[in-house]
């Protein structure tokens, strides 16, 4: 028997990539969250967060985008789409980082806040720092890993997964969701799902991020280091919470294979895909289409996929 769940509604910001190239990640994350009683209500109107936090002291123009998003959370409360709920949930590690860091800056600086509020004079609300940015992983941790474990129906027993943190979940320290040098949150999730976390030395190492645009060879090299070190440590798959890491680690395997013919492809999962599988959700929400390195073979050999049903969209 599954434990009874009471649904709670929280505003949710998807970000551009989860709506588009990586919509398969979103499908699995929303379904997994729902299975845990979290109904994530998408902001009715939203814009791109900017993907990278602007690091210069005077560049307020680039903090407007996240501020708009905070205002939408206020509007959702005003319009009773949620009740007194100022937490804003994200899955994408980059969105998370930009939103939380901008929020931090705006909370600290009345001057910046006033300038942006004044600039955005078409808005009907002003922002005073009320919104709280939360990554889904943080929500899971606060629910308690035992609660996650209780929900598991098909434990991922024997699946060796290397958690890859990358940068944006952890750094800088006052933004990150875990210890910047010794994080455990992904390992804990994997263990709750019954999988076997594989530790490897490059789990915090940057994948090259946006350098993938001007220099895909460089990123292919970085990804090769990360993936082959994980493989050497015994990993059969990688998991991450960042759709850009997922792109670099997964889709750059094409360039890796050209440069290093001995390289064997390794599937890259979004953390929520593994949750959906372990929760025994319908196969359509796994979102296994839209990967470069085929994840289905591995899952099928482990018996997590019903071989008979078509894998279309699943």
């Amino acid at each position: 028997m599954l434990p009874q769940v009471v649904m709670i509604q929280i505003p949710y910001y998807p970000g551009c990539t989860l709506k588009n190239k990586a919509s398969n990640f979103e499908t699995s994350a929303l379904a997994a969250a729902r299975a845990l009683g979290l109904e994530l209500v998408e902001l009715p109107r939203w814009n791109c967060c900017g993907a990278v936090f602007s690091l210069s002291s005077d560049d307020l123009m680039r903090h407007i985008a996240p501020t708009n998003i905070f205002l939408r959370v206020q509007e959702m409360n005003r319009d009773h789409l949620v009740e007194d709920e100022y937490r804003l949930v994200t899955f994408c590690a980059m969105c998370f980082n930009v939103l939380r860091r901008t929020n931090q800056r705006l909370r600290e600086s009345l001057e910046d806040r006033n300038k942006i509020n004044d600039f955005s004079y078409l808005e009907t609300e002003t922002y005073q720092g009320r919104v709280e940015i939360v990554h889904l992983l943080e929500l899971l941790r606060s629910m308690g890993w035992d609660k996650i474990q209780e929900r598991v129906q098909k434990p991922l027993t024997g699946l060796k997964v290397a958690p890859y943190y990358g940068c944006m979940l952890l750094r800088p320290k006052d933004v990150g969701i875990d210890d910047p040098e010794r994080p455990t949150i992904l390992e804990e999730l994997l263990r709750s799902l019954g999988a076997e976390p594989v530790d490897f030395p490059l789990k915090l190492r940057c994948c090259g991020s946006y350098q993938t645009v001007p220099n895909k060879d460089l990123v292919a090299d970085l990804a090769y280091d990360i993936l082959s070190r994980a493989q050497k440590a015994g990993a059969e798959a990688i998991t991450t919470s960042c759709p850009l890491c997922a792109f670099n680690l997964d889709f750059r395997q094409k360039e890796i294979q050209q440069k290093y013919p001995m390289f064997l492809p390794i599937p890259v999962f979004y953390f929520s895909q593994l949750m959906a599988i372990a929760f025994g959700l319908p196969q359509e929400v796994f979102g296994l289409a839209g990967h470069y390195a085929n994840p289905k073979t591995l899952l099928a050999t482990k018996g997590y996929l019903q071989a008979t049903s078509p894998l279309e969209g699943g």
């Binding site: 970000g15 551009c16 990539t17 588009n20 190239k21 990586a22 791109c48 900017g50 993907a51 990278v52 602007s54 680039r62 994408c92 980059m94 991020s209 946006y210 350098q211 993938t212 645009v213 001007p214 759709p243 850009l244 792109f247």
Partner: peptide, 12 residues
């Protein structure tokens, strides 16, 4: 390329 890569690279 995903939107996130383009947005980030163009901003930087």
């Amino acid at each position: 390329l995903p939107a996130i890569a383009l947005v980030a690279a163009f901003r930087k």
